[in-house]
Design a protein around this nucleic acid. Structure first.
Lengths: 211, 211
DNA sequence: TTAAAAACATGATAATTGTCAGTTTTCCCT
DNA sequence: AGGGAAAACTGACAATTATCATGTTTTTAA
C-alpha cells in the first residue's frame, strides 16, 4: 500500500467525531491503529511526575496520531486530546505494518516524515532549555499564527485556554496569564475573550530574540 | 543493502580518529554521508540564539551521526563534537539512499530506530520543561551511569566538564557547579577531580522525584 | 435561567536560577 | 618543569518564575 493508497483507504472510512476535550488515546494505552486527523486539532501531551501536563505538540489536519507507537510496537508515549471538535478516522495497525514491510516507498515516506518530526523535537528541546518563559510565549503566538492562521478579524484561528498555553511552553498557568496580560498592555497582542490577535508582529519577534 | 551489509561495509572501512574536542560536522553543514561511531562519545548540540550551546544528546558506540539529515536531505541540524577521543567511520550518502530505496527491511529498521529517538526526544522535552535544574542534574548523573557505566572505582566512565553538564541540562555553568558541589556536600555523589561517582543512588532518585 | 464549575486575573511572597566579578585549581603544551 | 590558558569554584546580587491566596468573569449543564 502506498501513501496514496493509504490515504484512499482512510478516505473511504467514515470519520468519527471527537468532541472538544475528549481523549483519543491516553499515555500508556496499547494502540491497535493510527488515527488520521481529518479536521480539528489535537494536543499531544504527557503527564510529568509533578502532576503537570506538558503539551509536546499540536496535530492538525493530515497528521497521524499514534504513528510512532505503532511503528515501534510500544504503548503510547503521549496522550491525544481534542482541543476543539475533531473528525478522525482510524487505520488499523495491520494495514500499516503490512505496508511498511511490503512497500519500500511507503516506509521511506514515513521515515522522512518521522525524521522531520525528530528535527522539530530537537529544536523544541533547545527552545525549552535556552529561552525564557516570556520568549517562549511570544514564540507560541507566532507559531499558532503561522500554523493555524487567523480568522477574518485577525484573531488566531486556534484558540487555546491560558492553561493550554502554559502547558505548551512549560510554565505555571498564572505565569502565562501574567505575561499575556503584559503583552496586551504593551500592545503586542490584542484579545477578545480568550481569542488572541497579534497586533505588533515585529515587537513580538523582538521579544523572542530577547531584545 | 541490509543493516548487516551496511555494518559489514562500515567494518571494512578504516576508522578515522577524531580527537577530543574536534568537530565531526557542524550545524548547517551539508553532509554527504553518515558517521558511524566505533568508539568514544560525541555530543550533538545546537547553538541557541542567546549564544549558548544546548547538548541535545550524547552518541556512543554504534550510533550513526547525521543519519536524520541525510534522510531528509537537509543540512545538519546539530553539531557533532567529540567528547573524548573517538573512532568513527564514514558511510557515503549514496549507499544509504540506495539501501533505503531498494531494501524495505533496511528502511523499516532505520524507521524503528528514528522512531525510538523521537520518543526519547519527546521525553527530554517533558523533562526540560517540567523539572528544576537540580532535578535535571541529578537525572543526568543517573543517565550517565546507566548508559556509559562506571570504571572499577565506581566513577562514571564518561567524564564531562561542568560546562558540558550545564549544556546537557540547559543551565548556566555556575548554576551547575553550585548544584554539583551541593550534591557532594550532601553525600549524594563523590568527586575526584572532574570525575564523579554516585554515592547515594536512592537519595539521588529522591532528588529527581522532587522529594 | 441560574447555580456550580471552570477559567481568568492579580497581589504578595518565596524559591529558583542567572549574571557578573572575581580567585583558585587543573590541564596542556613546548 | 614552568608558564599560560582553560576550567572550576565562590560570593553577591538581580532577574525570573513558582506558589499561594483570593476575587472576578465566563462557561457549562441541569
Amino acid at each position: 500500500m502506498s501513501k496514496e493508497e493509504l490515504k484512499r483507504v482512510s478516505d473511504t472510512k467514515t470519520a468519527k467525531l471527537v468532541k472538544k476535550g475528549e481523549t483519543i488515546f491516553g499515555e500508556g494505552e496499547k494502540l491497535n491503529g493510527v488515527y488520521c486527523v481529518r479536521d480539528g486539532v489535537s494536543k499531544l501531551s504527557k503527564l510529568s511526575p509533578n502532576g503537570k501536563d506538558q503539551i509536546v505538540k499540536l496535530a492538525t489536519k493530515g497528521a497521524l496520531l499514534g504513528q510512532r507507537s505503532v511503528i515501534t510496537e510500544e504503548v503510547a508515549n503521549l496522550s491525544a486530546i481534542a482541543v476543539n471538535d475533531m473528525q478522525v478516522c482510524f487505520v488499523p495497525k495491520d494495514a500499516i505494518i503490512d505496508s511498511l514491510n511490503n512497500n519500500p516507498n511507503f516506509a521511506v515516506e514515513v521515515l522522512r516524515h518521522i525524521a522531520h518530526d525528530l528535527k522539530e523535537a530537537d529544536d523544541v528541546i533547545v527552545n525549552m532549555s535556552q529561552k525564557t518563559v516570556r520568549q517562549r510565549i511570544a514564540e507560541a503566538f507566532i507559531y499558532l499564527e503561522e500554523n493555524f492562521g487567523t480568522d477574518r478579524n485577525g484573531y488566531l484561528a486556534l484558540t487555546l485556554s491560558r492553561e493550554d498555553i502554559a502547558n505548551v511552553v512549560g510554565t505555571a498557568t498564572e505565569s502565562a496569564i501574567r505575561i499575556i496580560s503584559n503583552f496586551k498592555k504593551l500592545g503586542l497582542i490584542k484579545t477578545n475573550g480568550k481569542k488572541v490577535a497579534i497586533a505588533d508582529r515585529k515587537a513580538l519577534y523582538d521579544v523572542v530574540k530577547g531584545c
